[in-house]
């Protein structure tokens, strides 16, 4: 069945009403957002993330923690692990399904027939998905914020807000990678597979590999820090810890080196790594998608 018959009340805009560049993007973003929040993955991820976040907040504040000794730091340490596992998975798979899914179903052809450029289509989908992801995170953090308020009092609101900010940055960076994967894949299943592989690499393989190399090759602290900061997940983790502790001393000699050499610039360097992971894959995806002559 075609799309038109499924929604007879919604008029299709004709070429005479061709929207502006941003207007076109916004229109596609809105559509993508609507599709995303109506889909099962969004519901599932939101539910999973919220449950886990609430669970971590609750458990980390039980027992002695409820006296507020640990403050927000302990909750954050628990949330960090959770975020580093779940958020990249959400964003990568969401991104991976975006273009490849439409391509597989044949609906990409329909989208490209609209009076908009290919770039507008891609960016629209990207921003729509990003908004949906951020909504999902807002729900999870909002409810666990309620738990923190109930159990721990108003501790560390600034830190909590920064944690959310960096998580959002991590999410859109991973979404960029997902979209890049999607643009290059013919089939949705292939894209998802590659996305899962990328997730495994970023979360486990690169860290374990870096650990092994620093043991084998006796890497110097600056080399370890440089290599770690390339990984968006490590950058995210370090940025959150800098924000919580005002330095990276808890991360041993490498952290102390980073804090001493970069000083106040450290969060910016780490943020720049995340920003690069957002911008570069997205730009690549746009270039590849626009240059493609076929669907």
């Amino acid at each position: 069945m075609s799309a038109i018959t499924s929604s007879p009340t919604r008029p299709i805009r004709t070429a005479s009403a061709a929207p502006s560049f941003l207007g076109g993007i916004a229109r596609f973003a809105r559509r993508e957002f609507r599709d995303a929040i109506a889909s099962k993955w969004f519901l599932l991820y939101t539910l999973a993330f919220t449950t886990l976040a609430v669970g971590v907040s609750f458990l980390s504040l039980s027992g002695v923690g409820s006296h507020g000794f640990a403050g927000f730091g302990r909750t954050a340490a628990g949330l960090l692990n959770l975020i580093m596992l779940v958020v990249p998975l959400m964003a990568l798979t969401a991104g991976a399904g975006s273009i490849a899914g439409e391509r597989e179903r044949g609906t990409l052809l329909y989208l490209l027939a609209q009076p908009v450029s290919r770039m507008q289509v891609l960016l629209g989908k990207y921003f729509g998905l990003a908004a949906a992801l951020l909504c999902s995170l807002c729900v999870g953090f909002g409810i666990s914020g309620g738990v923190l308020a109930w159990r721990a009092g108003g501790v560390g609101i600034g830190s909590y807000a920064m944690l959310i900010g960096f998580t959002a940055l991590l999410a859109i960076a991973m979404l960029s990678v997902g979209v890049l994967i999607s643009v290059c894949s013919r089939r949705s299943s292939v894209a998802t597979g590659i996305a899962l592989f990328a997730w495994l690499t970023l979360v486990f393989v690169s860290d374990l590999g870096l650990m092994a190399s620093s043991l084998l090759f006796k890497l110097r602290v600056q080399e370890i820090f440089g290599l770690a900061a390339v990984n968006p997940l490590q950058s995210f983790k370090m940025a959150v810890i800098v924000n919580l502790n005002a330095s990276l001393d808890v991360l041993g000699p490498v952290g102390s080196y980073a804090s001493q050499t970069l000083g106040d610039g450290l969060p910016w360097v780490l943020g720049a790594s995340l920003a690069a992971w957002t911008a570069v894959p997205l730009a690549l995806a746009v270039v590849i998608f626009v240059r493609r002559s076929s669907v």
Partner: peptide, 20 residues
């Protein structure tokens, strides 16, 4: 966000359409 973005203004929902 959901309220603002969900309001019908843009293109129709193609994805749900093809699924049905």
């Amino acid at each position: 966000c959901i309220a603002a973005m969900g309001i019908e203004r843009g293109l129709p929902q193609t994805r749900t359409g093809t699924r049905s």
